[in-house]
Structure formats: structure tokens, C-alpha cells
Design a protein around this nucleic acid. Structure first.
Lengths: 237, 237
DNA sequence: ATGTGAACATACTACTGAGTATGTTGTCAA
DNA sequence: TTGACAACATACTCAGTAGTATGTTCACAT
């Protein structure tokens, strides 16, 4: 079929490799679009809305994107990129030791949960993309692109499923690994629908919330949360 | 302010009291609209779409509903109705005994999870309503109605929060009851985004899935799942 | 029989919004 | 200097759609 790693590579390397090449306005459009899509949803957002929020016009958007769908896909892709960047650093290697595997899962999960809260607009777009996939809309060509993006998402979910299976070796039994990972991620992702950052110490607040959520999610699997002292993530930029 | 029980009564009694009074077509419109909203989302669904799926015309819809928003609200209300009908029978009374409280919570949760899978279109509309609430759309009057509907939803969530608090008395500590109930319901509600019924034994399948989900959700709180023998719900109609 | 209103269908209006076609401006190479 | 192209802005087309205005049918009360 299609070589697995490539799909990931496409997403994960774009930011690094392009750097200055990807004109600043491009990323700005993505951010503005994500914000608009979050506010009103894809269908209710017009290209003019996005342009307006940039003090620009429709022509500018269409200079960079061939259609509204293309713009949405680009935002979606960027959202997946963000998530991979958050989780990949902690997801490499196979831990045969149960506690190590648990620690790895916890790190991945907390990093994921924080990224989710720190980049809400993009994460909401990801959720909308999933809904769109179940829908029978779009043309054949768009459908193909969307399928590819969903595969990317499944790949991401796979990172967690494998980490969960590794962590649940031993005393814990998983009735259905797929169901387990879905439930697990459902808890972590739930913040998308109600969290809104407070001005005071959003960093601190997000870490605390993420910790509680991950504790709950792991406990559901019968796993105990590792000591927080062991989970010091590199604080990002 | 507004008397709490009334809001609930409005929703919970409508079906019973109206009965034959609510013309058949009314409920059919709700079902068709729910299906359309689920398929394409609120914004991307036209009144003509709904009418077409009923082999009717726009005039018929507007004869029963004053606007597209009104139709949406009615569908939302019906969705909440379904949920209350599923859960209320098991949510009455205060269990001081921990195990009893646990059993009560389990019954409520399983009934909720099954209702969710059995009425997907309506449940998806509920989700869309929540998103809509975070959004800055709609007029002032509509906003008021939407606020009322969200209060209804919060009331529903409150049933679970109280049941959770009652069940978690004793050996278990809840860091944040609100967070706990949000996570708890996130797990149960997650099926909305991926479950699709199989032709074979949907009843059986839904019960099995619901059981697994509830087990996970309760374990996350540190509660153990009661024996299934104790959880025989009255099978609905 | 007749008028009256409920329950629709049909025809129309007014507007929004995706996509396009065509300017306009600045920059940079030759 | 000029021409060529990137990076936009402006102006327009046209399909779709919320809402309205106006038939039409039929049951039912008087």
C-alpha cells in the first residue's frame, strides 16, 4: 500500500524544512482560518470572514489556497502536525518494563493534553474533520484527501494504542484495545469542548488539568499514574 | 430565578402529555431534521433538504416551525427528552449506602450510553448545540432559548454529577467533581463520533459496548463496576 | 351549501457567498 | 528600462437558500 512513515514524514517535517520558505502570511492564514472555523464551524465560515480577520481580502486567500476545502485541509494538516510534534518525542522506543511503559504513556498523554488546550482552534478543526469524514459531502477528489488526513489521524491514535497495549501488559487485561484507546483519548480530548484559558498562569493551569485528566484516563485502564516528579517534560519554547 | 423543576418538566412531560395531540408529522419532521443535521451539520443543511427527505416541501416545514433555528431547537429539546427518559427512572432517591449508589450510577450510565447509540442523530444534534453555544452566532432572542436549552443540558449533567458524588463517598476521593463528571460523560458520549450499528443484534451489541464503556468510566473514578446480574434494566418497548 | 381554518404546495424575493476574471503594485533579473 | 512574475485587491457571476406571499385542498362545524 502506501508506506506508513511517509505520511507522517510529510506532516512532521513541513515546519522544520520550510522554515522561512513558507511565507509568514501562509501560517497567519492558517491561524486565522482555524479561529474562524472554531468560532462558527466550517460551513458557516466564509472566506470573507477569514480575510476580514486578517484585514485582507478574498483574493489573498485564493492566492494561497485553491478552495475553501483546501484551506480547511491545510488547517487540519497543521493541527495534526502540532499533535505529532507534541507526542513524537516521547513515543519512540519499546519499553518492555511495565512501569517504563506506563511512564511513557503518561508523558505522551500529558503532552497531548497540553497541546490540545494550547491550540484549541486547530484542535476544534480536527474534531470537525472527523465529523466531516462521517458525512457524505465533498467531491471524489476531496474525499481522497480527507481519507488521507483521517489515516493520519488514525496513525496518531495508533501511537497511543500501542503505548496503551505496552503499558497494560501484565496485571491488567484489556477487553478491546481499540475501544480502550478510543475511551482513553476521549477523556483527554474532552477539554476541547469546555476548556477556555484563564489569564492567570495558563501554563500552570493547563498542566494541572492535564495531569488530572491523564490520571483519570489511566485509572480507567487499571493503570496507576506515575509520580509527577518522573514526568518532567521539556517546556516548549 | 426560574424554578428549576419547571425546565425539566417542560421537556420531560411533552411526549406523555401531548401524545396524539402532537401530530405525527411533527415528530417525523424532528426525526428527518435530526438525520439531516447529523449528516451535514446545521449550517450546511437546508430546509429543502429536510423537506426532500420527507417527500414534502418547504412550506410544510415552515407551517410547523417559524425558522430553521426553531427547528433545530425543537430537535435539541427532543434529544434532551430522550436522555431524561432514559436516565430519570434510575436517578431518583438518595442512596446513602456506597454500593447502592454505585449500582444506581451504573444503571444510569448504561441506560444513557444505550440511548446514545440508539438515537445517534438526536445525540449529534445535542453535540452541535453545545458547539453552537460557545459560538457567538444567533440573535438575542435565539440566544436566550439556546441558553435555556444549555441549562437543561447542565441539569442533566447534574444528575450524573450528584450520582457520582454519592457513589464516590468513602474510600474514593474526587479532586474535582465537575471535572470528574465531565470526564465520565466524555467516555460515555464518545460513541457518538464512531459507533455505527451493525445489522446483527444491535441491542446485544449496544449493551455490550455500553457495559465496557461504563466499566472504564467508573474505574477511572476508582469505583468498581457492579455485577451485571444486578443491572437488569427494563428493556424499553 | 357554505364558510372557515388547518395543512400543506407553489412561486417569488432578497441576499449571501464560493469561485473567477481582471486590475494594480512592487520587486527583481537581464 | 523593461518585462515578467509574485502578491495581492477589486469587481463580477451565479448558484443556492432563508424566509414570505399566495394558492389549493380537504375536513368539519353551522
Amino acid at each position: 500500500m502506501n508506506p506508513g512513515p511517509d505520511v507522517l514524514k510529510n506532516a512532521a517535517l513541513k515546519v522544520e524544512s520550510d522554515g522561512a520558505a513558507q511565507s509568514g502570511s501562509y501560517q497567519e492564514i492558517l491561524a486565522a482560518a482555524a479561529e474562524c472555523f472554531k468560532e462558527n464551524g466550517f460551513a458557516a465560515t466564509s472566506i470573507d470572514d477569514v480575510a476580514r480577520s486578517l484585514n485582507a481580502t478574498k483574493g489573498m486567500i485564493y492566492h494561497h489556497f485553491r478552495s475553501k476545502m483546501d484551506l480547511f485541509f491545510a488547517v487540519y494538516r497543521r493541527g495534526m502536525e502540532i499533535n505529532f510534534e507534541a507526542v513524537l518525542p516521547y513515543s519512540s522506543g519499546k519499553q518492555s518494563d511495565g512501569d517504563k511503559a506506563c511512564l511513557k504513556l503518561a508523558k505522551m498523554s500529558i503532552s497531548h493534553a497540553i497541546a490540545l488546550m494550547a491550540h484549541q482552534p486547530f484542535q476544534r478543526v480536527l474534531a470537525q474533520g472527523v465529523e466531516m469524514h462521517q458525512t457524505g459531502s465533498t467531491t471524489a477528489a476531496q474525499r481522497q484527501t480527507l481519507d488521507e488526513l483521517i489515516r493520519l489521524r488514525n496513525k496518531y491514535e495508533g501511537l497511543f494504542r500501542r503505548a496503551i497495549e505496552a503499558a497494560a501488559q501484565g496485571p491488567v487485561k484489556l477487553p478491546d484495545p481499540s475501544l480502550a484507546s478510543k475511551s482513553f483519548l476521549a477523556v483527554l480530548n474532552s477539554t476541547v469542548y469546555w476548556y477556555s484559558p484563564r489569564d492567570k498562569d495558563p501554563q500552570e493551569e493547563q498542566l494541572a488539568l492535564a495531569t488530572d485528566l491523564v490520571r483519570y484516563a489511566m485509572q480507567g485502564l487499571g493503570l496507576k499514574m506515575p509520580d509527577m516528579a518522573l514526568i518532567n517534560l521539556e517546556t516548549e519554547k
